[in-house]
Write a protein that binds this DNA or RNA. Structure first.
Lengths: 208, 208
DNA sequence: GACGGTAGTCGAACGGTGTTCGAACCTGTG
DNA sequence: CACAGGTTCGAACACCGTTCGACTACCGTC
């Protein structure tokens, strides 16, 4: 990859972590940090939006790698039995929660990215990322082992729900705190993960 | 309220429903539709952002009214017993889901609003709406009647989770469809609501 | 070794944005 | 009538993302 393009992605990632609002990310600032000019953003990526997508893609890969590593180590720990339901859920939503609270992490790249995706003029740009990068489907067989009475679609739907809860936590912390009466410490990643596991696990248990 | 201000809110609401992306909402377009000039936006509301907040506030009130009405009629139907768990959940998340799929509804105002809130420069502007307008707390006593083994914070946390799932449905339909193997018809409001009730209800049932 | 094409870089310019500001206006009150 | 206040408007400002043409550096080919 062209060194200037790489430097632009680096600068974009760095800037996305520092700023409070995506509005503060401008092509001129990114170019300045990367030591080049705003026109090179359009030249290398087509648009500023696609530069952010490229930056987010890189971060997504690391996040998914962490998810897979957690899943695999849980599987190895439990072998030859299937991994515990709680561990699978924690592998699925844990990294996002942990990253979103870790001060130096690259999570802001992802949260700014998703908020940009929502207001995009052409959602087609994001199709590949949504369908490809977030390959949550890896989790489906593990869940099926523990809940064989659910078909693949029902498992997928529950994974979607778990991710929705995860998003709610990483996105609207204030509302969560108010609703939970400030009885949950939403700055403690492990506590939050445990609470999510608490509500998600029953979705995969047999109705009594 | 000043007639020009009212016309601006009307125009803003109307425009938010028509456009595909919030980027297409400009002070000049709003002013044009309202038959005035862009500077009156700043004059009456302080900023374009606050105009959108005012428009969203009006729509939120209607949505919450519908929620309450559903809740009350469920309570009346079941009286003197407490309303069914499924009905409470449907009253909580049903209106959002239904509005988000209804063609002529005002739901786009809310979805554009939340996507704007996430990228805002100063989140303080939204504090009052998040804490006040969405008074989901009304639902807490009803849930407590059916799940007395959960304390108020645990109920609130589960309400948050239900809302997170709701958001996931109204926001990222494509991802849901892919994950659910296209086996769920996400354009059928009643089907979607039933599926949400399916996964949320177990959160309020006693662990077996 | 000279040459032509190509990729990369840059600065200027364009059309657009939200907001500010001062001048005009209109209305109701003393 | 005079004056004060709230309201409206258009011009101007600073900034935005993107486009475009000129200039440079390189690299394979005659």
């Amino acid at each position: 990859m062209n060194p200037t393009a790489t430097r632009l992605i680096d600068a974009c990632e760095q800037l996305l972590c520092k700023i409070g609002s995506i509005e503060e990310l401008t092509a001129r600032r990114v170019a300045m940090v990367a030591g080049t000019t705003p026109s090179s953003v359009s030249y290398h990526f087509g648009s500023q939006e696609q530069l952010v997508i490229a930056a987010a893609e890189r971060v997504y890969k690391r996040l998914n790698a962490e998810r897979l590593s957690l899943l695999n180590s849980a599987a190895q720990r439990a072998s030859p039995n299937p991994p515990a339901l709680e561990d699978i859920i924690a592998a699925l939503i844990g990294p996002s929660v942990r990253w979103s609270l870790e001060p130096g992490s690259k999570y802001p790249v992802l949260s700014h990215f998703t908020s940009m995706a929502q207001r995009s003029r052409d959602p087609e740009l994001y199709r590949s990322i949504i369908e490809g990068i977030e390959h949550h489907r890896v989790f489906i067989p593990y869940f099926r082992l523990l809940a064989p009475w659910l078909n693949e679609a029902e498992i997928g739907w529950r994974i979607s729900c778990a991710l929705g809860i995860r998003s709610q936590v990483t996105r609207s912390r204030l509302r969560n705190e108010v609703l939970a009466n400030h009885a949950i410490d939403f700055s403690d990643a492990e506590e939050v993960i445990a609470h999510i596991v608490d509500v998600v696990a029953p979705m995969f248990r047999k109705a009594s």
